[in-house]
Every structure is written in structure tokens, then in C-alpha cells.
Write a protein that binds this DNA or RNA. Structure first.
Length: 694
DNA sequence: CCGCACACTTAGCAGTTTAGAT
DNA sequence: ATCTAAACTGCTAAGTGTGCGG
């Protein structure tokens, strides 16, 4: 049933109002672009091998430069102070302390105490609910709702057996499978082109699970994956998808309509009498588990869910969703201390999965807001905390020393906390506290720098973190000490784990945990970078956006948010450069024409000649404008090759910083936030002016 | 203390749609 | 009109952090 496909929201209107003049932005010769300060932009080299800038969050840099160069100067101890000063240096700071105070207060107290409960607004129409304007009523943080009603989940469409003419073959012979085994077979067939199917673990896991759903006869017959031929089946699905793409406008319209209807019916819930959007109301369909990185369970069968697997959570006095006929829910509960509407246990890893609200909902939005308030709170405490861990670097107690070093990493490099994981159950990845000796190398000297730590490990999603960082001498000494008499596979911080670390952090500041440092450092970096990179003189929106993207990029690099380079990247890049060159030639040519038109006009001072001359000049200007746009695009693209900006934008950057920047520099918010993002950050967009300071 | 269950946030990728170039 | 790249969305895996029971 093709029925379920995307229903995406409206695309952001791409306001095409590049107006006004700009100045430099980049060399007219197509050479690497320079920032306002003439700082040259890095050039990426080896594909996946790149270094991350030593990512000193406290040290604002012109560009998200990546390469190792520079950075010697601050073998630390001073960087804290620097950063503090840096914050001031823009003298832009509009004494927003007071403003912060107000906002904080509004927020905290609102949430906290008994401010008058506004009448519960019925959400009659499309009118978006401005929950952030409302006085918070529940002081009790553990109660998430008083009333919750929803229609339950949407199940995956049932399996449609293959038509008779589509054949799976075993050992060269056509073999018809029973629906259970056939369905699982199609999961594999659909992935035939994928890299996964070349992996031994994937194949073994798949084959094992596949055999579990076979009948006795099937099982007796199918003994070797190597003898299976899925090609015809794979082709069939390819054909189906072509077919789908080629459907008529009307059919596509129709499907869209149906989808919208589905969303209307299942995509919303009544949460304390507000109509709120649900994030994921469809249950995950069955398929083969695609773990990231070297996941031991890749290829295992993710089973089809039945109502009997599903727990419903809603108000007692609500319309309780009905299970499909002939079925029962696993359980219906009424737990208002949690935010999920539906949950189930996924069979591959045994984890719970949930249906929850969309990010634009009150419950998610408030949480997000709170997160940034906690991070801002850290801003005022961080100096003290840094002093603390500096001191602790020399503690006589090993655990304290380890804690200090770990904290130093988390703060300076924005590493994740690094909870321990059950081994063998998932890919071998680490964070700060779970670093092993083999993940770092110590260099007393390296490329002109002293006390360099070379990190090389796989982090979340098996994304490689590779970085060479000069550290404090004391940190360096401690690290050698921690590694004494240990093997590569031993924990670097053997006396430390995230829970003790977080407990300690919590004692320093309410709500402080390791991840707050990531949020804090990301946001403060954005703020600093924006201040530094935005040229007030240059009013061109395109170049301002480039500045924004660069600031964003600095954060992405700090947080190590990577992506696979787009397909055909170098070809694309080549094409862009061709275009630029062509444009340059055009400009040359146009300039010639201006010259001759000019002399023409000098010889014969007619109105016509003058017009011609003017027009030629205008053309040059227009072409130059286009050239700059192209060059900016090319630069942005090049710099962004393997950097993912979305994650930090969505999860780490206080949206109020961005909104304030937009207001200050008259950049329309929709240039930096698409529809979804504006929706998620509606609270920030509504409440902030250009004076906001993180 | 710990191990584990649970809830919730953060993450990259794939597929689809849209915009822009030719 | 057709092609291509960019933008966007959905998806779901993989983290973080809390709290509980032993």
C-alpha cells in the first residue's frame, strides 16, 4: 500500500531579494575567499581524514578553520581569560544583564509559582497557540498533562505478496515462498544495492532471522544465502518505484489529500485542551535493522508490530483509542508523569520506542527553552568552574584529577559525556568518560606545538573524532600518569564515570550536567562568531548569510557534526568553478563593451549613445553582482563539504541568538530558518529583539 | 555503590519535493 | 520542458541522564 508517503509541509518561500551593494567578500580572481579580516579560508584535504580544529570554544576564530595551523599561541592557561574578554570586546553588549534578569525571572517564576492561571484557551482554529505568553500553571514538573486524548498510532501497511510473475530464485530455480518468509526476503531484496549487503554481519544476521520465519520446508531448502537470487525481486521494486514517480498529477494530488486526511485524523492530539501536533504518529514498519557503524546486530529482522505490542497512554476520561478490530492493546495506561502517547519495545535491541509530540508543542518547546536557560546559567558560573578544575588537575586524589581532565576535555572540546555501553551489543563508540588509552596519543612536541594530544576515536553514530590539541602541561602530565601501566584497551579514566561526573557538576550548579557544556559552548561560540564575522558595512544579504553560515560552521566543527560529502561533490565543485570562470570572462567582455560604448559616446554625444553606454555599465554591475553570488555560493559549498550544520542549529544553538542577529542585521529570519525550524523556534522568534544576549 | 529500565534529546541519512539552471 | 542540485522532511538509531531496587 503505497498510501503512506510524505506529506511535507510547505516549502519555505525563498524570498529572492538580494539587493544592495556589497563590498569585497572575496577576491575577484576566483581565489579562495577571504574574510573581512583577510584571513584565508582553509582548504579541505583528505576526504574523511580531516582534522577538526582544535576547537577551542573559548577562543573565537575568524573562520571555522579546520587545519592545524595556528593555535600554538594559546597553550591554554590563559584562554579562559581571553574568552571572557572577548565577550566584551564588541562593546555591543547592551547591558542586557537586566533584560536577562527579566526574562529569566519571567520564565523561572512563571513556571514555578502560582501566577494566575490563564483561562484554558480552547484551540478552536489554526491560530497557533502562543504558549510562551502564558503564565505557567503547574509548578509540578513531574506532571506533564492533566488531560490527554489521541487516536493511537497508525500501523504500517500490511504486507502485499509479490505478484506471481516476480520470482525469487534459489540455486538457480524459481522458488515461491510463504508470505512470512517472502516479506523478509523482500526487505533484503530492497537493500540489494546497499553497502550493507556486502557486510558479513549483516548477511549472517539477516539470514539467521530470515530462517526463523521460514516454514520447515523452506528452511530445509534454503541453506545458503549465497545461492539466493533476489535480482528479479529487487528489479520489481525498482520498477514499482519508477511507476510511482511517473504517476499523473491527479494521482499524486490524490495521495497528498489522503495523507493530509491521515495527518488530520491521527497527527494531532488534545493535550490539556490544546490541539498539539504529534511528532511521529506512525509506528515503525518492519524491516532489517540498520545499525550505524560496525553494529553487531545489523541485518537483524525488525518485526512487524501488532496492537498487542503497543502501550497506549492517555487520560482516563478521554476517548481511548480503539485497537484495530479483533485486536487488543498490550496495555492502556494513564500516566501523566510522562510525555509519550504510545510506546512499544523494539525487538532488536529491546529498547522502548515512543510516539511523542512535535518540537513545536508546548511540552517540547518549554523543555528546549529551559535547556538554553540552563546553558546561559552556566555562562555565569563557568569561570568559577574552570578555576575549580584547574585546581583539581593537581589534586592528590586520582579520581578528582581524572574528573578535572575529563571536564577540561568536555569544556574545551565539547566532547560528549560518554556513558558506558554494554559491549558487543552495539558499535564500539566512546565519549569522554569512556575514552580508552588507545584513543589518544601524547606528543610532547608536534608541529611546533608543545603538549599535544592526538584524539582518534569513534563517537556517537560512529563518527570519527580526530583532533590534535595542544593542552595544558598539567593536563598532559596527568594523561601520561593515567596511562601508566595500562593497555590500549583500558579505560583512560578508570576512576570516573558519567554518573559521578554529573553528580559533581550538579553540586556546582543546579541542572548542570556534562551535556550542558556542549550547549553552552556551542551557543556562546555562535554568538561570538556572529559578532566577529558579520561586517556591519556589508549590507548584502548573501554575504551576511555567508557570515552566519560560517559562524554556524564553527559550531558544527566544534561539535564534530559531520556528514558524508555529497555525491559527485568534486564534479559539482568543478562545474561551479566553470561557471565562475565563464562569468568572469563575460565581465571582461562586458567591460570592453563599456569602453567602446564610452568612446563612442565621446565622439558622438547623442542621447542614444549615452543610453547605450549607461546600459553597458549597468550590465557590468549586474554581472559582477552575479559573480559575487556565485563565488559566495562556491565558497560556502566548499567549506561545507563534510560539515552538517543542521544538527547544531536544531539542538545546540540558542535560537534567540540567531533571531537577534537577524533583527540586528535586517536579515529575514526565513533565510536562516526554514518552516519547520521557525515553527520549532516560534517562542524565540516571538520574544526576542536585537539586544538579546545569550 | 551497581545495574538496569525508562524517558527524552541528539544524530546522520535517505527519499522526496522544490527551485533554479539550461 | 527538462535536468540537477539544493532544501527539506521523515525516519529511526544512538546518545544522555535519572531513578529505582538490590
Amino acid at each position: 500500500m503505497e498510501g503512506v508517503s510524505s506529506h511535507n509541509g510547505i516549502a519555505s518561500p525563498s524570498h529572492n531579494k538580494e539587493h544592495k551593494k556589497r563590498k569585497y567578500v572575496l577576491g575577484p580572481d576566483g581565489k579562495p575567499l577571504k574574510g573581512p579580516d583577510g584571513h584565508r579560508i582553509r582548504v579541505k584535504q583528505e576526504p574523511r581524514e580531516q582534522e577538526i580544529s582544535s576547537g577551542d570554544a573559548h577562543h573565537t576564530k575568524k573562520h571555522p578553520k579546520v587545519k592545524t595551523e595556528k593555535r600554538h599561541s594559546d597553550v591554554d592557561s590563559t584562554h579562559r581569560n581571553k574568552s571572557v574578554k572577548k565577550e566584551k570586546h564588541g562593546e555591543k553588549r547592551k547591558h542586557s544583564e537586566s533584560e536577562n534578569g527579566v526574562k529569566d525571572k519571567k520564565k523561572k517564576t512563571d513556571r514555578g509559582d502560582a501566577s494566575p492561571t490563564k483561562k484554558v484557551k480552547k484551540e478552536e482554529t489554526q491560530e497557533k497557540w502562543k504558549w510562551w505568553e502564558e503564565a505557567g500553571q503547574d509548578k509540578d514538573n513531574t506532571i506533564k498533562w492533566k488531560f490527554l486524548e489521541h487516536k493511537g498510532p497508525v500501523f504500517a501497511p500490511p504486507y502485499e505478496p509479490l505478484p506471481d510473475h516476480v520470482h525469487f530464485k534459489y540455486d538457480g530455480k524459481v522458488m515461491r515462498l510463504q508470505p512470512e518468509a517472502e516479506e523478509v526476503m523482500t526487505f533484503y531484496a530492497k537493500m540489494l544495492e546497499h553497502d550493507y549487503t556486502t557486510k558479513e554481519d549483516f548477511n549472517r544476521n539477516f539470514f539467521g532471522d530470515w530462517r526463523k520465519v521460514m516454514t520447515a520446508e523452506e528452511k530445509a531448502h534454503i541453506k545458503d544465502l549465497g545461492k539466493c537470487n533476489f535480482v528479479a525481486v529487487a528489479d520489481y521494486f525498482k520498477m514499482k518505484s519508477e511507476e510511482r514517480k511517473a504517476r499523473s498529477k491527479e494521482e499524486k494530488q490524490m495521495e497528498k489529500k489522503n495523507n493530509e486526511a491521515l495527518i488530520e485524523e491521527y497527527g494531532f492530539c488534545d493535550w490539556d485542551h490544546h490541539k498539539e501536533k504529534i511528532g511521529n504518529f506512525k509506528l515503525e514498519p518492519p524491516g532489517l535493522f540498520r545499525g550505524r557503524g560496525n553494529h553487531p546486530k545489523m541485518g537483524k529482522l525488525k518485526k512487524r508490530l501488532n496492537p498487542e505490542d503497543v502501550i497506549i497512554n492517555c487520560s482516563k476520561n478521554s476517548q481511548i483509542p480503539k485497537p484495530p478490530s479483533g485486536h487488543k492493546w498490550k496495555e492502556v495506561r494513564h500516566d501523566n508523569t510522562v510525555t509519550w502517547l504510545v510506546s512499544w519495545t523494539e525487538n532488536v535491541q529491546g529498547q522502548n520506542k515512543y510516539i511523542m509530540l512535535n518540537p513545536n508543542s508546548r511540552v517540547k518547546g518549554e523543555k528546549d527553552w529551559q535547556k538554553y536557560e540552563t546553558a546561559r546559567n552556566l555562562k555565569s558560573k563557568v569561570g568559577k568552574i574552570r578555576e575549580n578544575y584547574m585546581r583539581d588537575l593537581k589534586s592528590t586524589e586520582m579520581m578528582v584529577r581524572q574528573r578535572a581532565v575529563a571536564l577540561y576535555f568536555i569544556d574545551k572540546l565539547a566532547l560528549r559525556a560518554g556513558n558506558e555501553k554494554e559491549d558487543g551489543e552495539s558499535a564500539d563508540t566512546v565519549g569522554c568518560c569512556s575514552l580508552r588509552c588507545e584513543h589518544i596519543k601524547l606528543h610532547k612536541h608536534l608541529d611546533d606545538k608543545d603538549f599535544v594530544v592526538e584524539f582518534d576515536f569513534l563517537g556517537k553514530d560512529s563518527i570519527r573524532y580526530y583532533n590534535k590539541v595542544p593542552v595544558l602541561k598539567q593536563v598532559f602530565k596527568n594523561l601520561s600518569l593515567f596511562m601508566e601501566d595500562k593497555e590500549g584497551g583500558d579505560d583512560l579514566f578508570d576512576r570516573l564515570n558519567t554518573s559521578t561526573l554529573n553528580k559533581y557538576l550538579n553540586s556546582l550548579m543546579d541542572g548542570l550536567t556534562a551535556k550542558v557544556f556542549r550547549t553552552y559552548n556551542a551557543s556562546i561560540t555562535l554568538q561570538n562568531q556572529l559578532l566577529e564575522l558579520t561586517d556591519p558595512e556589508d549590507e548584502n544579504v548573501a554575504s551576511r548569510l555567508l557570515s552566519y553560515n560560517r559562524a554556524n560552521r564553527a559550531v558544527a566543527i566544534l561539535c564534530n557534526h559531520q556528514r558524508a560529502a555529497p555525491k559527485n561533490f568534486s564534479e559539482q565543485m568543478g562545474r561551479m568553478n566553470d561557471k565562475i570562470r565563464k562569468k568572469q570572462d563575460e565581465i571582461q567582455d562586458a567591460k570592453q563593451q563599456v569602453k567602446s560604448a564610452k568612446s563612442d559616446y565621446k565622439h558622438m554625444k547623442t542621447e542614444g549613445k549615452r543610453k547605450l553606454y549607461e546600459n553597458k555599465k549597468k550590465r557590468v554591475a549586474r554581472l559582477q553582482e552575479q559573480l559575487i553570488k556565485l563565488e559566495v555560493q562556491a565558497t560556502d559549498k566548499e567549506e561545507n563539504k563534510e560539515i552538517a550544520l543542521g544538527t547544531s542549529k536544531l539542538n545546540y544553538l540558542d535560537p534567540r541568538i540567531t533571531v537577534a542577529w537577524c533583527k540586528k542585521y535586517e536579515v529575514p529570519v526565513e533565510k536562516v530558518y526554514n518552516k519547520t525550524q521557525r515553527d520549532k523556534f516560534a517562542w524565540a522568534i516571538a520574544m526576542v529583539d536585537e539586544t538579546y544576549e545569550f
